[in-house]
Amino acid sequence: MYCPIHLALEETIHHWFLEDNMQLQNIYIGASSSVSIQETFDNPQWLESLKPLTTEPMKVVAPDYKKFLDPTATRRMSKVLKNSLLTARQAMEQQGITELDAVITATAWGCQEDTTKFLDSFESMGEELLSPTSFIQSTHNTIGGLIAMSVKCNGYNNTISHDFMSFETSLLDAVLLMKENKQAMNCYVGGIDELIDFSAGIFTKAQCFNEIYPVAEAATCFIVHNNEAQKKSAKLTNITLTQSLDQTILDLIKQNKPDLILSSSDIPSDLPVFDYRTLCGEFSTAAAFGLYLAAELLTKKAPVAFGISGALKKIAIINVYPEGRCSYLELEGC
């Protein structure tokens, strides 16, 4: 038996904004950047040349790191750290900012390469004379700490690791932070998960994910802000978290009538639904890719492949997860 949880953020969000001064009425998704299994990084045309999914676990299209990062400074960094740093920098550059007010990182499985490297080192070499590098880089907050260091951000810094809900509750964290601060802020919000060979096998065996899609990975980030005057890709109009695809969500779909729903679940609605996991594969913070795609579709002309005619003005991203969690995110074009 399930008990519906009603965190209708939509109402609350509108309520908050009415209380705030006019300039801070809205929360926006500004620039974004993604390293994913598609050729998303540094490529505005990625939607025109989509890669099909394979049946094997899929790793990201690795950027030319040398082109963007100082090889000496990043020599000991794992792939996930490089991708996170790279996407953060690119999003900031596209937003036209050199400083951040907050760094909020969502990662379900954290820095797995370094974690397993450290586990391996004491399993194979014994417990003496171990090198600390992989331990230092193994904690979930390594990513957020690194980004903060690279841009000298002394502001708010949080890392959320709550399985499938990591990204949604991170986005909520940014919204709550901006509400509390009541001033213009640029928040980095990233959804990051890394796939390593070891865990790819286990994820599959342990049936952690929907087996329709290959297990995958991505580092996707957004500059979330509340400054009307700044670059905006979309307006964040709703975050609703429930325990299932319940009446709350169905009512939202009915009332808000998004032009497109991005979801991998059966949505009982006549509105067009696109399964975005057919582009990004499956991983715990895939919702960040869903949001990225939504922002892209609102700012770019949707390719024919999506079967959408006419301009998109409003997109909902709906995720139904195991263990009784469901999320509804909504973006409107600016």
């Binding site: 965190l7 907050n141 957020g144 959320i160 709550h162 809900m165 990591s166 342990a206 263990e323």
Partner: peptide, 28 residues
């Protein structure tokens, strides 16, 4: 395997206490 993740203890404790509001896990 799912018990290895940071989030699992949060969900387990919430379940044990029959708490059904928002739950999340911070790892800083």
């Amino acid at each position: 395997f799912r018990k290895h993740g940071c989030y699992k203890h949060t969900e387990s404790a919430a379940k044990a206490l029959n708490v059904k509001g928002i739950s999340t896990t911070i790892s800083t």
